[in-house]
Design a protein around this nucleic acid. Sequence first.
RNA 1: GGGGACGUAGCUCAAUCGGUUAGAGUACCGGCCUGUCACGCCGGUGGUUGCGGGUUCGAGUCCCGUCGUCCUCGCCA
Length: 593
Amino acid sequence: MRKSWQRTHTCGELRRSHVGANVTLNGWVHARRDHGGIYFLDLRDRYGLTQVVIGEQLAATLKFGPEFVLSVRGKVNAREGAQVNSERPTGEVEVIAESIDVLSASPVPPIDISGATETALETRLKYRYIDLRRAQMQRNLEHRSRFINAMRRAFERQQFIEVETPILTKATPEGARDYLVPSRVHPGEFYALPQSPQIFKQILMVAGLDRYFQVARCFRDEDLRADRQPEFTQLDMEMSFVEEEDVFAAWEQVLVETFRDALGVELSVPFPRMRWEEAMERYGVDKPDLRFGLELKAVDTWARSCDFQVFRGALESGGRVMGLVVPAQHGLSRKDITDLETVAKGLGAKGLAWWKAGEAGGAGPLAKFCATPEAARSLMQALGAAEGDTCLFMADRKSLARKVLGELRNQLGRKLGLIPKEQRWAFTWVTHFPLFEWDEDAQRYFSAHHPFTAPEDWSLGGAMAGGSPDLGALSSRAYDLVLNGWELGSGSVRIHRADVQQKIFSLLGIGPEDQKRKFGFFVDALAFGAPPHAGFALGLDRTSALTLGLDNIRDVIAFPKTASATDLMCDAPSTVDPSQLAEVHVTTVVPKA
RNA sequence: GGGGACGUAGCUCAAUCGGUUAGAGUACCGGCCUGUCACGCCGGUGGUUGCGGGUUCGAGUCCCGUCGUCCUCGCCA
């Protein structure tokens, strides 16, 4: 028998075949059951729980509490009949303790590790080292590890090579707010943490690496959400001499292999493809949840011949009239409709018209415009609605009508239980996003994806030849991968021509001087023989969460931040010593409260 | 930056219309118990009701401010 405290087995390992063996287990005190003459202890480590039996005499010499760390030496004993715990893999055996060393003590933990009560997130984040002891959290992190490693293997099978890119890099004027790092050596100058390895991976293509991937940490100084952290991890990739379908095929293969290896799930490929315009028109969002129908319906044509002033007004000012049909079987009540209208107004809608379909005119605000059977029938036909269905209408700017109905569709999908449990993995590629988006506040166009995205039309609607096309109408070769209504990642075919890249910068209002200063190195690189290339990046936090059925990515991140971007465990961010600031030539100006 | 919810024992929660000594479950401590496995039974410790101010005879409860957490809109190329 070993003399040291070091374990011979883990707490999840012992089985009937080990009966009679002398073993040493190390682990945490999970639960204690003191019966006076006999004492039971559940010892826990990452691998499981093992029951330790302690005799009266030995128990009397020991002093320990929950979450103490012990080394238990003893003999494996078979449990028979009612003593077997069929709930546990180790339930057919127990360890009869011969000696026990206390390796480490603990106060009463502020978190219930057994999972009997759900501890407040604030406490879990402050004492993350205890929270992470919970089986659920260990399972989450193990799952994430398995998933990422399966993905790595799948990329390597396709000849991709993993390359690391800098964390200290150059600030980018477009896109999200940068996290800045002051330079000690260059007073007054700053590095930025990468929002993504975008430029580096494109340069790796120029460098002839052909197929790159990386598990890449990305940083964006923007406000958080349940599915957004200021630093997050992407499976980033880029390929040369390819177009959209090659990227899709590479990823579909990777995802098939990854889901098979890590989850035992067989995905059906190819995933459907859908143009952005189609997604917006049918689902009102650019990340449609395809697990249920309830599609948006255009009723502009019907509305044009209707006397309803709200509808006519919207159409006359260039807007749209769109509808959503909730089948009669769901029995939407007046209160339900009022609640939906509240949601709609919260999103900026002026109101929500509704109609209970009926050939005799139906009911609701629209009933009087459907008073004749012809009018009622034509509206039902335009909507694909049947007698008794509840129809909801938005008449507004195209973008707002889609956004509101898209949100109502998602809420109704959940509320009415339209999402079938068996249909778990509804992937889709959304393609051909707009190239530019108009920003009202800045009074200029911004790249909808990023400024390195190839246009669908390399002539840029004539802009390359000096024309002035409607930039808002240009389509791009950007695409997203969507799963169950979540955006899992995005990518694009890139611009590999220096002249087109320069034109895009100019159209974005970045003058020649700024282009040279901020992106000169990159345009230079494109000029030196850049292959056509395209790529994609998958959000690993979201994908890990979604594949575990979680709706908050904090549960798949070991040390996540709060909604105000703080780390409650180590109390970051924090002030620093003035001498440290002086060293990096920084003075701070803190606004008065 | 805006909106909403929340903050009471180590943990999860309760406390009626503003009313007496702020309770329960669980955990912890002590006692009893040789087959439990969220052991059981008996007893006990444990509170700056986030913090500051105000109204009131009286505030966990009402008002103002502030801090923190969560969700969300804006934002996130």
